[in-house]
Simulated assay, not measured.
Amino acid sequence: MLPENREYTIPREEIRHLDITDLERIERFKKAGYGGNVSDSLWSLGVCDTVLSQRFKALRQGMQLVGRALPVKLHTLSIDTSYLPGESLDKFYEDYLDGREHPQKIMMRTVASEPDGSILCFDCGGDMQPAHFGEMSCQLAYAHGCRGMLLAGNCRDTQYVLKMQDFPMYSFGTAPNAFGGWIVTDVNVPAMLPGHVTHYVTIYPGDFIFGDNDGVQVIPKDIVDEVLLRVEAIYEKENKQRQMLADGMPIDQVYAEFGVL
């Protein structure tokens, strides 16, 4: 469904917007958000088709992946067998590109040209043979404002990625080999990543990504702030409820005041 065709439970003119930066959005989502209240906020707006596949796993528990989606499409590339193991593939890519700029450079330039707070979202086309991203690429992206990675493929160099201060990585798996044959084909265009309740979820440039221990969700860009405000309201309400429960509120009173928890 195209963003402009999506229907919500409230009129579009009632959707709230905040005059804040994406880095501020990220911090507020990290403080108040978790998978459940993000999902409930989306559901209250009529959105239930943006949960991503359970195959996406964080490199470690406790990571929060929050930021503005920068989708990237990859394509499997068969390496010419004349390039034998041990030989540099630079000549292969030079021949393949035939004078065109390397698309990974275009991708990194896009990261650098946009406001801080992007999340690289890789559509790998189902290719699971090589590692598609490594720590040095993470370092380069982070230095230019990227704040995480959503990878429908493999990552590598994970012991060093885990040492980075603030670069959460969610992927389908890990692999040590970079060889195998793939190349970036499109940057900052809609991409389709495997979904949980739908076969695929289309991620549009500027959508927001929210991932934690429960999984990863896409927040359509036109309701990011509306979702954030609803998440914060749930957070405040539930903190009060938690204290009441901890103080021993009687069961009947709990259900009378809060409903089904």
Rank of each mutant, 00 (worst) to 15 (best):
N154K: 12
T174L: 11
M107R: 04
A246S: 12
H102F: 13
V72L: 08
F56W: 05
C155W: 09
G153M: 05
V201Y: 13
F56G: 01
C121F: 08
M136C: 12
F122R: 01
G215S: 03
R6G: 08
K163Y: 13
S88N: 01
I79A: 00
I251R: 04
R100D: 13
S53C: 11
I10H: 11
Y204K: 03
Q243S: 12
E24T: 07
D95V: 05
K57F: 05
Q104Y: 10
L89Y: 14
H199T: 12
D123L: 01
L65K: 00
V201N: 07
T76I: 09
G259D: 12
Y96G: 03
D157C: 03
E232G: 08
E7D: 07
G211Q: 02
V197L: 14
I79E: 02
S118G: 10
T76F: 13
V161H: 03
A191R: 12
E238T: 14
Y96P: 04
V254L: 06
S53I: 06
A131M: 01
A233V: 08
I26E: 05
R12Y: 14
S88K: 01
S78Y: 06
L229Y: 13
L89Q: 02
A112N: 12
F172C: 06
D157E: 10
D49R: 06
T158C: 11
V72F: 06
T158D: 11
C48P: 10
R242Y: 09
E13G: 07
G145A: 08
A112I: 09
V201A: 00
V231W: 07
S39I: 09
D49P: 13
L59T: 06
D157L: 05
Q217Y: 04
A175H: 15
V254Y: 13
V184E: 11
Q104L: 08
D49K: 08
I26F: 09
I15L: 15
G248Q: 06
P130N: 01
A141Q: 07
G36H: 00
M107I: 02
Y34P: 01
G211M: 01
R6S: 12
A256E: 15
V227R: 00
P220C: 00
V187A: 06
P115M: 00
N154L: 09
V47T: 04
M1Q: 13
G180L: 00
D157H: 05
P3R: 00
G173S: 02
G99C: 04
D98F: 11
C155D: 13
P115C: 00
D212V: 04
W182M: 12
Y255E: 11
I203M: 13
K221H: 15
D247L: 08
L84H: 15
N239Q: 15
L70G: 02
E135H: 12
Q61D: 15
F133N: 01
K30G: 09
L89C: 02
D225K: 03
V38K: 03
I10Q: 05
A256C: 13
L59D: 10
D186V: 07
M1P: 15
S53P: 14
L2C: 12
V66T: 08
N239H: 14
Y160M: 03
D247P: 06
D212M: 10
T21C: 06
N177K: 07
W182F: 15
D186I: 05
K30W: 08
V189I: 14
V72W: 03
D123A: 11
R242L: 03
